[in-house]
Amino acid sequence: MSVIYVLLAISITVALAFFAAFVFSVRSGQYDDTYTPSVRMLFEDEIVDDADKTNQDNNLIKQKKSTNQ
């Protein structure tokens, strides 16, 4: 029956591992903002890539115009 020690040790190790994961997630700030990630995950990479490249120079001009309006 001493197998119960092994089982207890395993179960407590697993539990502690999850507890450590929880502490890590809180510490890294994952609970600070619980709303934005739920929206962010729904975005796809909608950006039209070529538009960005062809307009590179154009952008800079626009930039200047808009910031110095």
Binding site: E46, V48, A51, D52, N58, N59, S66
Partner: peptide, 10 residues
């Protein structure tokens, strides 16, 4: 204009 010309029209 800024958004569309930078591919941000989404």
């Amino acid at each position: 204009e800024i958004f569309t010309s930078n591919g941000l029209s989404t």
